[in-house]
């Protein structure tokens, strides 16, 4: 487990470096979902270099597509893309588009960027897995602010209606969106009760505890007849002192001095 903490830490360094290098991108919500991605890609999903191009495997939809730096960072940790390629993020001719594009980047299972669409795609993948009568699972990561989108609730209804117990949604509940705190911009609380009333199984977890996220994902596999949502309590900008809990770092790039401070916070280069 210590190793996975190192993986997460390396991802965080890459995230701030990528956004700094591109002079654009979304560090806050990338740093908040880093540990969730580590748990999913290293402990939960059956995905590796050998089955990457196989449609018959677990899939992940990063519905909050602006957290692309976190997704690319974990794909690099898994060896699906070279780590040095991360520094092409958001630059012209790069495979690493500002928001993930499945046509461009290996390991990206769905193109996202326009919020609210990924859960529907996850529903479709899960229905397909049911039709195929296989054991593969679909994972979707949404933001809490993203739950403002009506389509999320259309998809939530459909997932429960079709009893998609092979679908797992993780909500990166960092409490902030672009214009400020969720409850000030558009109150989605109580998220868990809303999903429960839509017919979902609901788990709550510390989204920075890789073990706890892993356990919740494994426990979800045992829940039959309904989809599961894990509401992962997280800190926007986690790991970088001046970004933590600051809505202003949703979509802003650190300058040279800020990068140096961020890397110092994360334990050096």
């Amino acid at each position: 487990m210590e190793d996975l903490k190192l993986v997460a830490n390396n991802m965080r360094k890459n995230i701030v470096k990528m956004v700094h290098n591109a002079k654009a991108g979304h560090p806050g919500g990338s740093l908040s979902c880093t540990d969730i991605l580590v748990a999913l890609y290293f402990n939960v999903m059956n995905i590796d270099k050998n089955n990457l191009n196989d449609t018959r495997r677990d899939k992940l939809v990063m519905s909050k597509g602006h957290a692309s730096p976190a997704l690319y960072a974990v794909l690099a940790e898994k060896g699906f893309i070279p780590e040095e390629e991360l520094m092409t993020f958001r630059l012209i001719n790069s495979r690493l588009q500002g928001h993930p594009s499945r046509k461009n980047c290996p390991g990206v299972d769905m193109s996202t960027g326009s919020l609210g669409q990924g859960l529907s795609v996850g529903v479709g993948m899960s229905i397909a897995n049911k039709l195929d009568n296989n054991e593969f699972r679909t994972y979707v990561i949404c933001g809490d602010g993203e739950c403002d989108e009506g389509q999320i609730w259309e998809a939530a209804m459909a997932a429960a209606h079709y009893k998609l117990d092979n679908l797992l949604l993780v909500i990166d509940h960092n409490g902030l969106q672009i214009d400020g705190r969720n409850e000030d911009v558009m109150n989605t609380a109580p998220l868990g009760e809303k999903f429960a009333s839509f017919g979902w199984n609901v788990f709550g977890v510390d989204g920075h505890d890789i073990d706890a996220v892993t356990e919740a994902c494994k426990a979800a596999e045992q829940i039959k007849g309904k989809p599961t949502v894990i509401i992962a309590e997280t800190i926007k900008g986690k790991g970088v002192s001046f970004m933590e809990n600051q809505a202003g770092w949703h979509g802003k790039a650190p300058n040279d001095e800020e990068l140096a401070q961020a890397l110092k916070d994360l334990g050096g280069e």
Binding site: G124, A128, D132
Partner: peptide, 27 residues
């Protein structure tokens, strides 16, 4: 078994169709 009503929710329907296509179906 291959007909899926999505209710009056067209946005979701298009996303579900995309997901099924990603897994090899022709929706």
């Amino acid at each position: 078994e291959r007909h899926f009503d999505m209710g009056i929710a067209e946005a979701n329907m298009m996303g579900v169709a995309a997901g099924m296509a990603a897994n090899g179906y022709i929706p």
